[in-house]
């Protein structure tokens, strides 16, 4: 299958997106912001629809909309008392407003139904050279941003109140991270589509967290699983003619379920070993 240029592009695109989705998604899950990932990819869909209507590349519209929404969501930062409900409310309302705009953009753009399908479900097999370069740029920006933010972000995610007490700029870290998330969601939506972008952002990191891995191991496993899912999805799609997002979505759910079974089995065997030793 690699003799076809579009497949080589697809594999390269999936690799770039996985390298972004693994680490960014791990932090998202750690901070309990899965809803933000879901919302940002949908918000990106509206931006892409607007960009098509105005004659710009869809990825540019996706990034612009997601970035603006990410900053709005990040500004409702997680203080130490009672913020999650308020934060989810903000995300929901930003999502609702942008989806409204998105439907209007689609209405204004001709050929709305085919465009909507492409934006919602992705077109990984249609990734061109220019899109690859855009994805590479997004990957570099995201990973550099995460590299700069990682320590205060990790500290404020694991122990928000202690981090505040030690003078960590919690709000700046939260805002910067949401900007990185917005870029990452746009990149993932380019491959998996707006509807399933968050399966790459959430599935592998949720699996890594379920395995009780520390940050370094968690980010590494999350990235490798994202690569496994996206490349596996491509190969299965080639073999079965079913769309790639189907395999990515199903694979993410299966991985998460498998991790749960593994943890149960491990705990059971630890308990059994302990009771044998006690006897």
């Amino acid at each position: 299958m690699l003799e076809f240029e579009f497949m080589r592009h697809a594999f390269a695109g999936c690799a770039l997106v996985s390298v972004i989705a693994g680490p960014v998604g791990w932090f998202l899950m750690l901070r309990r912001q899965a809803f933000a990932a879901h919302a940002l990819s949908h918000i990106g869909f509206s931006g892409a629809a607007g960009a098509v209507w105005l004659g710009f590349p869809p990825l540019a519209g996706m990034i612009a909309f997601s970035l603006a929404a990410g900053l709005a969501i990040g500004s409702e930062h997680e203080a130490d008392r009672g913020a999650p409900v308020q934060r989810d409310g903000t995300i929901g309302l930003v999502l609702a407003a942008s989806l409204g705009l998105g439907t209007w953009f689609l209405h204004m753009a001709n050929g709305a139904s085919s465009l909507a399908t492409t934006l919602l479900f992705g077109d990984v097999l249609g990734i061109g050279r220019n899109t690859l370069f855009s994805l590479l740029a997004v990957a570099i920006v995201c990973l550099s941003g995460l590299g700069v933010l990682c320590r205060p972000l990790l500290f404020s995610s694991l122990a928000p109140q202690v981090a505040q007490a030690k003078g960590v700029p919690v709000k700046i870290a939260a805002l910067g991270f949401m900007a990185v998330c917005a870029l990452a969601c746009s990149a993932c939506a380019e491959v998996a589509g707006a509807l399933l972008a968050f399966s790459l952002m959430i599935g592998p990191p949720a699996t890594a967290l379920r395995l009780n891995l520390g940050p370094l191991a968690g980010v590494t496993v999350s990235t490798l699983l994202a690569l496994f899912l996206s490349w596996g999805g491509l190969i299965l799609s080639w073999e079965t003619d079913a769309p790639v997002p189907l395999w990515i979505g199903l694979g993410a759910a299966l991985l998460y379920g498998g991790a749960g079974l593994w943890v149960r089995f491990r705990n059971l065997s630890v308990r059994t070993t302990s009771s044998i030793r006690a006897q």
Partner: peptide, 13 residues
């Protein structure tokens, strides 16, 4: 990890 990442957790990079 909760303890390790609090060491120098206020620094960037």
């Amino acid at each position: 990890s909760h303890v390790l990442n609090a060491v120098g957790g206020a620094c960037w990079g």
